[in-house]
Computed example of a mutant assay.
Amino acid sequence: MRDGVRRGARVLLPCYLAVLLFALLAPSARTPSASVGWLGRALERLGAPEQLLEPSRVEFLANVAILVPAVVLGAVVWAAPSWRDWTAYGFVFSGGVEVVQALLLEERSATYVDVVANTLGALVGGLLVAVVRRRPGAVSH
């Protein structure tokens, strides 16, 4: 992979993780809730089916989507981990966040559904990277 892309990912990854941790570990759920509301309105404008616009489904999709960029950037920085590894890292990361929310953040609610959604997002990111790397002519690390 080109050095410029890897350098860019090395800068973007910690920035993205900082924003991610801020959203996931903020004492209040106001910011994440507002983000889910914004995503729901965006999906509605894009013509998403009514069933998808149910707030709990929008929240699930947001929790899936939130880890995909982290995994893609991480895979650019570190080539060795496979999609399986990234999925496991996503599970551990998500479980850790939910434990912190449960034990230290009174206004937040820790749920198993969030762990499932975040882990699915890590899987999606890992598979996306694996597919791109297998394309003919793809540059590997």
Score class of each variant (00 low, 15 high):
residue 69 P to Y: 06
residue 70 A to D: 05
residue 45 R to L: 14
residue 139 V to T: 15
residue 113 V to Q: 15
residue 27 P to C: 04
residue 25 L to S: 05
residue 59 E to S: 13
residue 10 R to W: 13
residue 84 R to K: 12
residue 65 A to I: 04
residue 90 G to I: 02
residue 125 G to N: 11
residue 123 L to A: 15
residue 106 E to D: 14
residue 52 L to I: 10
residue 60 F to W: 15
residue 126 G to Y: 07
residue 106 E to K: 15
residue 92 V to C: 02
residue 25 L to D: 07
residue 31 T to N: 03
residue 73 L to F: 12
residue 136 P to Q: 13
residue 75 A to K: 05
residue 121 G to F: 10
residue 9 A to C: 09
residue 104 L to H: 11
residue 98 E to V: 02
residue 41 R to T: 14
residue 18 A to C: 13
residue 132 V to W: 11
residue 44 E to D: 15
residue 36 V to M: 07
residue 127 L to N: 04
residue 80 A to H: 08
residue 105 L to K: 10
residue 59 E to I: 02
residue 66 I to N: 01
residue 1 M to V: 08
residue 12 L to N: 00
residue 67 L to F: 12
residue 26 A to N: 11
residue 6 R to P: 07
residue 92 V to F: 06
residue 62 A to M: 03
residue 99 V to R: 05
residue 124 V to L: 15
residue 11 V to S: 03
residue 29 A to N: 12
residue 73 L to V: 12
residue 133 R to W: 11
residue 72 V to D: 01
residue 46 L to S: 12
residue 41 R to S: 15
residue 87 T to F: 05
residue 69 P to A: 01
residue 81 P to M: 03
residue 56 S to R: 15
residue 44 E to F: 03
residue 69 P to L: 08
residue 74 G to S: 12
residue 131 V to Q: 00
residue 97 V to A: 06
residue 29 A to Q: 08
residue 63 N to Y: 11
residue 105 L to R: 08
